[in-house]
Nucleic acid binder design. Structure first.
Lengths: 145, 145
DNA sequence: ATTTATGCAAATCGTTTGCAAACCT
DNA sequence: AGGTTTGCAAACGATTTGCATAAAT
């Protein structure tokens, strides 16, 4: 099924002199199964690793570009698979009440405008943009208005 | 100078049964003087309050809509004055190396596109967007490439 | 006088780290 | 064997909280 994905991840880790251990694979599987970024606590439960191993491996996976850290509005770190592994460029809906983070996409037209804005900033300031982050903050369906 | 601002803030606090104490005014002054979001530590130094008072007052100011919390990529909380007090809608450049957060603006055209995307999401999903957050992540001038 | 804000020191809690045992190659 | 990963328990650090004092109305 997601065999290509695991293969790509394995290659990425090997390239950084890291092993794709069963523990790391569990963490990745948890993220593959989810349709939204997961908190460290959620990954910890789903992955079945000890707390310290989960955090340590998430750190390794992040450094190797397999996993990406997502900033919400609450105090919990959230993680998702890197976009270049899933080929799914997206943005986040963030509930300001319960902290839930879900994915959404925008039109190609808007994406292109965002890219253009990034380039303009690069020309104007000393800042070198790498990626953008577009989030919508509000109330999720469960938290109503 | 920024007398209107302080007056508006005072009114906003009073409306929430809170006082605009000298300590709170110090915190606000620190934010007024800055041209970018400040970390709690920076505000603490500039404001001259005890740590606990600074955090407690920032919390009050945030609840009353005077101050807004800004999410960077590091572990430090950052704060800025609420946009509806400064009339300066803007976005953030976030350095992925040192954590520095600075302000930038985009064209009205792009802002309108973002608003339109928000409305589309509201119609499509159960999510009720309130505001958006557009950040550019990369290297600040000091951190080079 | 009564309520609210302050500062100090201690507690909280998500995350990180030291270390000895288990694992891989 | 040699180096890496694991799990446990302890440490860490930004933020929060309890409590007695000071300030404001």
């Amino acid at each position: 099924m997601a065999d290509d994905l695991h293969h790509a991840i394995s290659a990425r880790l090997t390239g950084a002199d890291q092993r794709y251990t069963s523990g790391r694979r569990s963490l990745v599987d948890a993220l593959v199964d989810a349709d939204r970024p997961l908190t460290a606590a959620e990954i910890l439960v789903a992955g079945g690793l000890a707390q310290s191993s989960a955090y340590r491996n998430l750190s390794v996976l992040e450094t190797c570009g397999v996993v990406h850290r997502v900033a919400g509005t609450d105090e919990f770190a959230r993680f998702e698979l890197a976009e270049d592994l899933t080929d799914h460029h997206h943005h986040h809906l963030i509930c300001t009440n319960c902290g839930l983070v879900t994915d959404f996409t925008v039109s190609d037209r808007l994406e292109r405008s965002l890219e253009a804005a990034m380039e303009r900033v690069a020309e104007t300031t000393g800042f070198r943009p790498d990626h953008h982050r577009l989030d919508l903050l509000g109330r999720c369906a469960d938290c109503g208005s």
